[in-house]
Design a protein around this nucleic acid. Structure first.
Lengths: 226, 226
DNA sequence: ACAATTAAATCAAACGATTGATTGAAACGC
DNA sequence: GCGTTTCAATCAATCGTTTGATTTAATTGT
């Protein structure tokens, strides 16, 4: 997995357990994942879970933190650059940055090696939230929403905290997420078997066009002197 | 539940098992749902599953069919009316019908009594498809996508089967679905506790505006004599 | 029309297998 | 040699399924 491998042999087992847990919990409910399946995938002993985490429940929460860190690590470079350029940026700069953000999100959603596991984990927490959702929300979901919303607000000249900006942000980000969440559907519709990097690029461009068009019409509506 | 209650007392247990299964499988994986939990909810005996369906696996597949039928039943009236008006309809009629379809989808996604169970069931099958996905896809997902795509194609003057129409359909329907799938996120962002009928109406109008705007820009791009 | 017979449906009890967790001994690095 | 980490063995609890008996409903014989 794409994580930094710890040279410390003590923490190696812990890291393998987290990676195996993410893969397992990304595809199955908490109750549906057996601790034995995790330790088998991690090539560890059954009691390693109790020893390193205290139990299955604590391992699950640690996996949520591990997931948030992993995604944050994978997107931090691109994301922080966008966020830095976005402060007090003019509308046309925000438009360009929004395109970059969409590209970043699409690529990470479709090409990221743990995107499938992450999507499964996050959705389950969305549908029936546990304590893990708080971790994912504050460290992953909310920052992305705020970044997207601030760009949107920069283009539209409104407050990022406005109710309608939040709703539009959610709807427009849905255009991206649906290609991960409902990937089986769209692949079947296209009679395709997987999205490669080229597909992701094309998809990001399409979504960017749709997104900017939706925003533009709102600009015109607010400034009827057109 | 909003299903037609069978006067036949023989099939009553079967129906209760299906309703209980949908509720259970909508919130938990196949493996995470115990047959004992289902029969307890259904007020039936443990062996009723084997007797009426042959086993847990067959009950699960029957639940998928039950879900497809239930949603179909809930949306059939509004959907068939839209589909009937859509045949060879001019672009402006398609625009109006698309708004009605969005309204229908939003309302059913957010207000439908089994929408939460359905969303959970369908997502799990999207993420790790089993034999149940084929049922859901052919009887539920694909018809909706085709209806949406044909309206889109009617507005844009293109073939509903075109690759780009399918992609745009998927992206735009994502604007709707994300409010069900990621409902926990948007409710937390808004510091809201639930979407009522008024919220759903407002949401449908917002999404319709965003959607039509995205389509309109494409019209202009294709007809540059504007 | 009513008792006898058959079929359909439900029930409690039990099966082996698997679950999360714990234990004390063994192996490890320093 | 001592603290850390891993191991196989074992615990009670729960899993899906099966079983044989019981109850309920329908059918038949007369």
């Amino acid at each position: 997995m794409g994580r930094l491998q710890p040279t410390d042999p003590k923490a190696a087992t812990r890291e393998r357990l987290l990676a195996a847990s993410l893969k397992a919990f990304g595809h199955n409910d908490y109750q549906a994942v057996s601790t034995r399946a995790i330790v088998e995938q991690a090539e560890a002993n059954i009691s390693a879970i109790s020893y390193h985490f205290g139990g299955k429940q604590q391992l699950y929460l640690a996996t949520a933190r591990f997931l948030a860190e992993s995604i944050h690590h994978a997107m931090h470079e691109g994301l922080s650059e966008i966020q830095a350029k976005a402060v007090k940026a003019p509308a046309d700069t925000c438009r360009k940055l929004l395109g970059e953000l969409i590209q970043l999100l699409v690529y990470n959603s479709l090409q990221g090696e743990l995107s499938a596991d992450a999507a499964g984990f996050i959705f389950r927490e969305q549908h029936d939230p546990t304590a893990a959702f708080d971790i994912l929300y504050h460290e992953l979901i909310e920052p992305l929403q705020i970044t997207y919303a601030s760009l949107l607000a920069g283009i539209l000249g409104e407050r990022p905290e406005a109710r309608e900006i939040k709703l539009i942000t959610h709807a427009l980000m849905g255009q991206i997420m649906v290609f991960r969440i409902s990937q089986t559907t769209i692949l079947r519709r296209l009679q395709h078997d997987r999205f490669d990097a080229q597909d992701s690029h094309e998809l990001a461009e399409l979504i960017t066009r749709l997104t900017l068009a939706a925003i533009d019409s709102r600009l015109k509506k607010d400034n009827p002197h057109d």
